[in-house]
């Protein structure tokens, strides 16, 4: 589990996050939802330590993260897997080398052991045998899946996904959502997903934080989200034609 405690973050004189506190639960898919520009990516980058918070603290299973030294942070970082909005695969490496990279960097395993792990991860994301492809030869959905495989290769306790299904068709997006949800439950990870896709919200939203203009506006889950009597949240949820009609 991860605890965000009173996090604030500004860039220059522009305040992006205001006093956000949230409890991300273990073994569940925790969602951060909100409009484009509401601060989801900034919040996630604060949580993983890519940005330093101005105020507040982040605890990983009780270990205060923000105040740790560089070396100790590094140790927690090896327990973190992250899927970036664009995949962020290393483009001069093959699929196999990408997934093997964290293993080569942080373990002393032999090539055979590492390859076994790589193949296991590839199988987990339904990409068996695609080891030799370069990132430029992959489709958008495949990139996300390889990125997931890389994120889970060191068997992380915490998995972060920034818009895992942006730019994908609804079916492929659904497959990615399922994949994330399965991995989370199989390995009992603390998973945090940024999304503005209502399908994901209703499918895998076990614990939801709704961010509006940098503030935590509402919390709940995929069931309560439909019944919430919060105007801003409702505008967000029922923005599409389809959801409007369903309502």
């Amino acid at each position: 589990m991860i605890d965000a405690k009173n996090i604030s973050k500004s860039f220059g004189d522009q305040q992006i996050l205001r006093n956000i506190s949230f409890h991300f639960e273990e073994g569940k898919t925790n969602l951060i939802i909100g409009q484009s520009g509401s601060g989801k990516t900034v919040l996630m980058k604060c949580l993983v330590g890519l940005y330093d918070v101005d105020e507040g603290d982040i605890e990983y299973d009780g270990r205060s993260y923000s105040k740790l030294s560089f070396k100790k942070k590094k140790k927690i970082r090896q327990e973190i897997g992250m899927l970036f909005q664009g995949g962020a695969l290393f483009d001069y490496m093959t699929v196999e080398e990408n997934i093997m990279f964290p293993l080569s960097m942080f373990t002393r395993e032999s090539y055979e052991e590492k390859l076994k792990r790589v193949n296991f991860c590839l199988e987990r994301v339904n990409l068996e045998g695609q080891n030799a492809l370069m990132p430029s030869e992959l489709s958008g959905g495949m990139i996300k899946r390889v990125a997931i495989a890389r994120a889970i290769s060191l068997n992380p306790k915490y998995l972060f996904c920034d818009e895992p299904n942006s730019g994908l068709d609804p079916q492929t997006a659904g497959v990615i959502d399922e994949l994330i949800s399965e991995i989370t439950h199989d390995f009992n990870m603390t998973t945090i997903v940024n999304t503005h896709d209502m399908n994901s919200v209703l499918k895998i939203g076990e614990n939801i934080a709704f961010i509006n203009q940098g503030e935590l506006w509402w919390t709940g889950n995929k069931i309560s989200v439909l019944k919430a009597d919060n105007t801003v949240l409702n505008d967000f949820i029922f923005a599409t034609e389809l959801t409007k009609r369903l309502k």
Partner: peptide, 17 residues
């Protein structure tokens, strides 16, 4: 620069590299 804008540097950083 390309690694920076495509978040590959962030990805390295996250891994603890």
């Amino acid at each position: 620069g390309t690694m920076r804008v495509t978040e590959q540097i962030d990805a390295l950083q996250i891994m603890g590299v």
